[in-house]
Design a protein around this nucleic acid. Sequence first.
DNA 1: GATCTATTGATAAAAGGTAATCAGTATCAA
DNA 2: TTGATACTGATTACCTTTTATCAATAGATC
Lengths: 127, 127
Amino acid sequence: MSIERRTTRQKEAIKAVLEEQDGPLLPDDIHRLAIKVVPSLGIATVYRSLKNLQAEGQVCCVEIPGQAPRYERSDKGHHHHFHCRDCGQVFDLQKCVAGGLKNLAPPGFEVIDHEIILYGTCKACLS
Amino acid sequence: MSIERRTTRQKEAIKAVLEEQDGPLLPDDIHRLAIKVVPSLGIATVYRSLKNLQAEGQVCCVEIPGQAPRYERSDKGHHHHFHCRDCGQVFDLQKCVAGGLKNLAPPGFEVIDHEIILYGTCKACLS
DNA sequence: GATCTATTGATAAAAGGTAATCAGTATCAA
DNA sequence: TTGATACTGATTACCTTTTATCAATAGATC
């Protein structure tokens, strides 16, 4: 049987941050935002909560090559990401051009999944 | 003025490994392969050589999310990669369907570069 | 061959991110 | 309210990858 869960201000604050955010966030980002609600919040609790939320399927992990894992709500459906090389922020993309991707693989290879990452400058950094 | 370079068995072995390999390799892979030619080769020398080759533009870095950087010759032109979830090996893809990718970004965003990674099972692991 | 010094290999140590520890706190059922 | 215990926060430990250190080795030039 699974462990009894309790509702805490800390977990609620972390979930709220992930809820209202568009793109994926670093554990450190989440900490910095959630600390506004629960000032005593420790980074260890952020890692613990993310691990639990991920196990429960509420949150999923987004990895940009060469960077630490980010986390976002898992109810957003299939999508990809844009990484701004100026501010470092990661944004969600709406559409996915996966059609034709499978043809990229060599003959005899089975494609199960794919990842597309766009790099560039976001709107805010351009202006 | 730049530092005088010397030709060594170690550097030649590392370059040869990168030369005859198709996909990108981990420093550890390179070490394991080059050691067959120069048994005394240390891992530090692999890192040092990769750093130099990269600075000279002969080698470039390939990053798969959540994994250590791999390295490959930089004379292969624009291409992407296939990561086999079974054996962990990374393969080069020939074509690139970049057309239409720019449209994925939100209005006002400038796309400079992109990355496409296919995940699945390679031919060898399927059979 | 002799000399200079770039390079090497073994090792220690750094860096970054994450997990373990543990005493104290707070939740929730009774 | 009380009691059992899940949770927290501070800190330390950890893990993996990469870099620094340094004495010894070995290219390149004369």
